[in-house]
Amino acid sequence: MNGKQSYSRRFFLKTSGALAVLAAIPASVKALYNEAKNFIVPPKQTFPLPVSINKKMYKVTVDTRTTLLDLLREDLHLTGTKKGCDHGQCGACTVHVDGERVLSCLTLAAMLPGKEVTTIEGLADGEKLHPMQQAFIECDGFQCGYCTPGQIMSAVACVKEGHTSSVAEIKEFMSGNLCRCGAYNGIVESIQKVAK
């Protein structure tokens, strides 16, 4: 032993031990906090989702809870599809999946791999509007326009399904799309025009 040694073996062990304990406490507290949080609020589950929209492949990492509507609007910024009620009561979120009209607010994005989604953005052919879009303009098929993307997607399907033999039939098969402005007459006219 000589006077130059400033730290004793005991001192070293004591200090390093205390430091280790100090370092360990926040970690275990944090872990406990996370465990408690996960018990009360289950952690969100994310996964990689390949999805084809308007014939373009997207790869996004999303929460399992994501609906097709939120995927379109929030993740892919395709905001043409509108959120009205978010509970399948208004039809504003209507899109086509594999060519059939569905409600995107009640479709789980996780169920989409292998399917083709068409939104209002995918309807026009370049600069040329889809005949139904053109008809809605010509027949005054909208006022405020909020329900219009859903109305048009539904109308295109209505014609494709062949439910256009009478005004009554068109109204029955368009009943899933509500319009608060009351542009229904223009919408029916638009459909009749395209169905001809």
Binding site: G88, G91, R101, V102, L103, L106, S154, F173
Partner: peptide
């Protein structure tokens, strides 16, 4: 329901 919901 509606045509959309019947499709699903």
């Amino acid at each position: 329901a509606s045509p959309q919901i019947r499709n699903m």
